[in-house]
């Protein structure tokens, strides 16, 4: 069984062309990246605002829970029937899939951003105000850097979910690595399905590792303790 999967993956013809692995990999990353960026643009400012002002906490906690409960497949079909007649060409299929991935990615990013800002120690905030900073300055120079680890881990968990779920775009006939799963299932081609699954998992891992490096380099060393203890 394993040998057949390796043989499928080792076959050069499976990697090339318009329906080859490389093309599908790029499509998969495109779908995931676009959805993640849109979700981040919505969720991070909203999370920062709610964490900073304390307004709408109730809304976040409950809306985030409810959004997590929405089944992606059902939402995909609903979005398809709602959007497809209003759009034309490939975008009629891309928009519903994108919407599903954005809805999936918003809750973890939003709760990360909100929890990050809310978790900033009051003493730190007071110190910033005491130094003469105004609301937006406190936000930009103190709360945002302090909240960064939680914001980034929210984005990371959103990213893992988006990469895994982007496979269902293939249900609408779109590309991405999900094609190998759906096509393999339809033609009873187990090595193809298994290879598709392995590729998605490897992609998720690779992107997560890159992100771990980014996280390490952008989070202030003052927060991670990499400066060592301050001597007085």
């Amino acid at each position: 069984m394993i040998n057949r999967i390796i043989a499928w993956l080792a076959d050069v013809t499976h990697w090339q062309g318009d329906d080859g692995i490389l093309r599908r990999l790029v499509e998969h990353m495109e779908y995931s990246a676009v959805a993640l960026v849109i979700a981040a643009l919505i969720a991070i400012p909203l999370g920062l605002y709610i964490g900073h002002t304390g307004r709408g906490r109730f809304l976040v906690v409950n809306a985030v829970g409810a959004a997590r409960a929405i089944p992606s497949l059902g939402l995909l079909y609903l979005a398809f029937f709602w959007l497809a007649p209003r759009l034309s060409g490939e975008i009629a299929f891309l928009a519903p899939a994108g919407l599903v991935l954005v809805v999936l990615a918003i809750p973890p990013i939003l709760s990360g951003a909100y929890a990050g800002v809310e978790g900033v120690e009051p003493a730190v905030r007071d110190a910033a105000v005491g130094m003469g900073m105004r609301g937006t300055e406190v936000m930009r120079h103190v709360e945002l850097p302090c909240a960064l680890p939680l914001i980034l881990s929210g984005i990371r968990s959103a990213m893992l979910q988006v990469i895994a779920t982007a496979t269902i775009a293939a249900v609408l006939g779109l590309g991405g690595l999900g094609r190998f799963l759906i096509d393999g299932l339809a033609s009873q081609d187990f090595p193809q399905t298994a290879s598709g699954a392995i590729l998605v998992a490897v992609l998720a891992l690779a992107v997560d590792m890159v992100f771990a490096l980014v996280q390490r380099s952008v989070v202030s060393p003052g927060l991670t303790g990499r400066y060592g203890k301050v001597s007085l």
């Binding site: 779920t165 496979t167 799963l181 399905t193 598709g196 998992a201």
Partner: peptide, 17 residues
């Protein structure tokens, strides 16, 4: 944690085999 990155569709298809 890695187990969670396996797409559900893939797991559903592969487990029977």
């Amino acid at each position: 944690g890695l187990l969670y990155t396996i797409p559900s569709l893939a797991l559903f298809i592969m487990l029977p085999l």
